[in-house]
């Protein structure tokens, strides 16, 4: 079941440099929401920006929902300016959830920047199912890291070394695995910039590691009616998969990652 409803904003706050969260409540949505699903939100009722924006759900607590976003365009600037009580037009939950079943003992949740978005809920779901959970989160510098003490086993990496490992997030994964020796019983879940997903894919292919990715891509409808969000597939009877409907969560082996548009052309 998916819903289209107008909710009231509870709060917005900046949690890291240019990283914001927005909170609201919807008992109907939280009741059916599964890890890795997203909501499609209309910033306001104006025609500019026209379309909804897709956001993975960052946190859920009872009927409370929290989304996380960067302020970088028209839509997110409108979000950041919301005040408690302002209406928010929400559609969802959408997309196919993460696959949580399978033969692994530990889930390694790898995120770059805003790729942190789906990880808290995923981590909780894995934990509840008895898996070990590790978070490896990277960003350019310490002020852009979302430090959240509710994250399970967090490890951080920054490009400038100002927090955690002085490395990119893929090197941080390598570092972790080399100390941990648990290669054969891990599954990696990753979300972040396409460049990061690319190099993580290569890394995992070399080590024969199981990697699931959560893709971000521009959408028009979010529900499979416009065909606007294709990503090429390696196999199968269709050339393209629609990220909004068949994704955003995939087994990395199914995708031609080079077919993902890079951010801003």
């Amino acid at each position: 079941m998916m819903y289209l409803e107008t909710v009231a904003v509870d709060y917005t706050k900046e949690v890291a440099e240019n990283v914001w969260v927005i909170g609201f409540r919807s008992a109907r949505i939280t009741e059916v929401l599964r890890p890795g699903q997203f909501l499609n939100i209309k910033p306001d009722s104006s025609y500019d920006p026209l379309l909804r924006r897709a956001y993975s759900v960052h946190r859920v607590d009872g009927d409370k929902i929290e989304l996380i976003y960067n302020v970088h365009g028209k839509g997110s600037a409108i979000f950041a300016a919301k005040r408690p009580g302002d209406p928010l037009d929400v559609m969802g939950p959408l997309g196919v959830p993460f696959r949580l079943d399978g033969k692994f003992k530990k889930g390694i949740l790898v995120s770059g920047g805003l790729g942190i978005a789906p990880m808290p809920i995923l981590g909780e779901a894995l934990h509840q199912r008895g898996y070990d959970v590790v978070n490896i989160h990277g960003a350019r510098n310490a002020s852009m890291i979302v430090q959240d003490d509710r994250l399970r086993n967090p490890h951080y990496a920054t490009d400038d070394g100002s927090l955690g490992l002085h490395s990119n997030v893929v090197q941080a994964v390598e570092h972790y695995l080399d100390r941990d020796h648990s290669n054969d019983s891990v599954r990696l879940f990753a979300c972040g910039p396409n460049k990061m997903l690319d190099s993580l894919t290569e890394f995992c292919a070399n080590r024969d590691l199981d990697l699931k990715v959560s893709l971000e891509c521009q959408m028009a409808c979010g529900i499979g009616i416009c065909q606007g969000c294709p990503v090429e597939m390696k196999r199968g009877n269709r050339k393209y998969t629609l990220v909004c409907m068949h994704g955003p969560n995939y087994d990395v082996g199914d995708l031609v990652l080079e077919s993902l548009p890079t951010e801003h052309g």
């Binding site: 025609y47 500019d48 920006p49 026209l50 379309l51 891509c217 521009q218 959408m219 028009a220 416009c226 065909q227 606007g228 969000c229 294709p230 990503v231 090429e232 269709r238 050339k239 393209y240 077919s259 993902l260 548009p261 052309g265």
Partner: peptide
């Protein structure tokens, strides 16, 4: 029909561009 490669859509002020390619 598979349709066109990505990127297929872009938002414009009060509108959008599409190149779905009749998928």
């Amino acid at each position: 029909r598979d349709g066109n490669p990505p990127q297929r859509i872009a938002e414009t002020p009060a509108g959008m561009l599409n190149s779905i390619g009749l998928a």
